[in-house]
Computed example of a mutant assay.
Amino acid sequence: MNDNQIEVPPSFIALYCDARGRLSASAGWVRARYELCEDSAAALVEPALALAHAQAPDDGAILRSMHAGLVSAESGLTPSEARWVVMRLAELLDWPAPAVDDAV
């Protein structure tokens, strides 16, 4: 999946692989979805930090709250993409990954 400059990480590719490890969508589709999810995670860094400084809840509560919004149908993300965005956000913030499920 490296026919352009964007390197899609294995953690994201796994969202679109079947049980045998084959992509269940086109490489272009996966790359586009990855870009959307990566951009979403990056865009949530500042709001998450603002919540951490203004309300001082624990990091996990902020991430779980953001996951609740992302997993809703209105977000345009699949449940597995929403989970990936939150895990990536935790990584960007250097916060522990929260326990979240993919339920809508």
Rank of each mutant, 00 (worst) to 15 (best):
A82P: 03
S40R: 15
C17D: 00
S40L: 14
A48H: 14
I13W: 10
W84S: 14
G69I: 10
W29A: 01
L36C: 11
I6F: 00
E74T: 12
V86P: 01
W29V: 15
A56V: 03
E35M: 12
S80Y: 15
R20M: 10
R33I: 01
E38N: 05
P47D: 11
V104Y: 11
R64K: 15
V71H: 01
V8P: 01
A32S: 09
L44D: 07
M66N: 07
L23C: 01
A42S: 13
A19M: 04
A103T: 09
A54T: 05
D94K: 00
L63D: 12
R22I: 04
A73Q: 11
G76H: 08
V71Y: 06
A27E: 10
A50D: 06
R88I: 08
W95A: 11
Q55V: 14
L51G: 13
A14T: 12
H67Q: 09
L51D: 11
D59L: 12
D3G: 11
A48L: 03
V45K: 15
D3L: 07
A73E: 10
Y16F: 14
L93R: 11
I62N: 13
H53V: 06
A27D: 12
D3H: 09
A25N: 09
D58Q: 12
D101L: 04
A48F: 03
R31D: 05
A61S: 10
Q5D: 05
D94V: 02
G60I: 04
A32L: 05
V30N: 06
A68W: 03
P10H: 15
F12M: 01
D58Y: 04
D101G: 12
V45D: 05
A90Y: 10
D18V: 13
S24A: 09
C17E: 06
S80I: 03
W29Q: 11
A54Q: 09
F12L: 14
A50Q: 06
E7L: 13
G60N: 04
L51Y: 04
P96L: 07
E74M: 15
R33G: 00
G69N: 10
A48I: 02
A103L: 03
A52E: 11
D102L: 13
V86M: 00
L92W: 11
W29G: 00
M66R: 09
L63F: 09
D94S: 13
V104C: 03
Y34T: 02
L36K: 11
L92H: 08
L89Q: 14
E46S: 10
P9K: 10
A68E: 10
D102M: 14
E35V: 04
